[in-house]
Amino acid sequence: MKSFLSYLSWIDGVAGAVWVLLSLIMVGVLFQIYRKKGSSNPSFILGLFLLVLVSLYPLYTSFFTNPEVGIIGNIVTLLITVAYMTRLKSISQQLSRFMIPQVVWLFIATIYVGVMLIDQP
Rank of each mutant, 00 (worst) to 15 (best):
L59V: 03
R35W: 11
L8C: 14
I25R: 10
G28N: 02
F63T: 12
P67Y: 10
V18K: 02
S23P: 05
G47P: 06
L5A: 13
K36Q: 14
S9M: 03
L51H: 04
L53M: 10
I11H: 05
S62A: 10
L48Q: 09
A15V: 08
F49S: 11
L22D: 04
N41F: 02
W10P: 01
W10S: 00
S6Q: 15
S62T: 12
V14Q: 04
S39F: 15
S6V: 14
L5I: 11
E68M: 10
L30F: 01
Q32N: 13
L48G: 09
G28S: 07
Y60K: 07
S3N: 15
P58Q: 03
V54I: 07
V52I: 03
G13K: 08
F49L: 10
I11Y: 03
Y57R: 15
F64N: 10
F49C: 14
P67G: 10
Y7A: 15
L46Q: 07
F31C: 13
I25C: 07
T65D: 09
L46H: 04
F31E: 12
P42M: 05
L53I: 05
L46S: 12
L5V: 12
G47R: 00
S39H: 11
S3G: 12
V20I: 13
K2R: 02
L21Q: 03
L30D: 07
Y7C: 15
A15K: 11
S43F: 00
F4S: 15
F63K: 08
G38E: 00
L56E: 09
W19F: 05
K37I: 00
L21V: 07
S40M: 08
V27N: 08
G47D: 09
P58N: 06
G16P: 02
L51V: 06
F44D: 02
S6C: 11
L8A: 14
N66P: 14
S23V: 00
L24H: 00
S40E: 14
E68L: 13
K2M: 15
V69L: 09
G38W: 00
P58H: 04
W10N: 01
F64K: 13
M26L: 11
V18R: 11
F64G: 04
A15I: 05
S40I: 08
S55Y: 06
V20A: 08
S62N: 14
I25N: 09
S6R: 13
L56Y: 06
F44H: 06
L46R: 12
L53W: 01
Y7D: 14
E68C: 14
